[in-house]
Write a protein that binds this DNA or RNA. Structure first.
Lengths: 144, 144
DNA sequence: ACTCCAATGTTATATCATTACATCGTTTGC
DNA sequence: GCAAACGATGTAATGATATAACATTGGAGT
């Protein structure tokens, strides 16, 4: 069992930044937050992100072109499908996995002879809280 | 029942281009193929794509930042989850849907009070054919 | 000390997408 | 008919995301 190499300084800083953020951050947003630490170029962020993505400590949300720290870093070794729910209003992200979903995708892949390497499973919409707030807002607008 | 307005010239051209292509195309790739038709700026492509995406005639593959013509344009009115399998080697795309997968996502959403608006379901890897070719290639390299 | 290799720094550039504004043609209401 | 309103279009400029290319640094192993 090869021990994972410790994170480098840049990787640590990027991961900390993502962990501290409540919402997903773009690479350039991360860069801006790390200028005080000496970051100057996008590549410093992208290179750190590459490693963090490899090890599963960070996920990329394709639909947002943004990155989040993994909520369950200890759990998945990198080979499990993870799904995300993204609130369009508050930016919140819920990470979850469902073995049944995974089974269905695996079943399709097996039937087609497809070898799955990476998965992007993202649902976008309104979280419970923002939904309620939206409903309340509409009621006000309607003069109720 | 409001009849769908007919496609405009630009929309028709973009859709034809995507339909004719075997692989997903980026917006700029579409632009290049339509220069002969008078296209000059990315916006002409993006505007047409917006409409085609709205009506479900085209899908965007977030993981590739590219677009494909829908394989089943008549079927889904726009409210059904569609999943894609993308071959990293040949660029081929398989569009499929699975009510069980949809059910599981819906179950999660219902439990959390999440209102789903759009979904991005993409699996990336190797298609059956490319897998076979890769295996054959390795065998050759190994001197078998 | 030397080699090797990964991480880093820096500049430039490629790629993807949108803003802003002017123009044209149709439709709609009068 | 005419003008207001609207949607589609054309064009230029810019913003946002990501990578290429190359030089340098700093251990780890020998």
């Amino acid at each position: 069992m090869t021990a994972k190499p410790a994170l480098t300084r840049n990787q640590t800083l990027v991961l900390q930044t993502l962990t501290a953020a409540v919402e997903p951050l773009s690479a350039y947003a991360i860069l801006d937050r790390l200028r005080g630490e000496g970051f100057r170029a996008p590549l410093q962020v992208y290179r750190a992100l590459d490693k963090l993505l490899e090890t599963g400590l960070v996920h990329r949300l394709d639909s947002l072109k943004a990155f989040v720290a993994c909520s369950h870093p200890h759990e998945h070794g990198g080979e499990e499908m993870v799904a995300f729910a993204i609130c369009e209003t508050c930016g919140g992200v819920w990470e979850f996995s469902d073995s049944k979903i995974e089974d269905r995708f695996s079943a399709w892949a097996e039937a087609e002879g497809f070898l799955t390497r990476t998965t992007t499973l993202e649902i976008s919409g309104l979280c419970s809280l923002c939904r309620q707030r939206a409903a309340a807002g509409e009621a006000v607008e309607a003069g109720v």
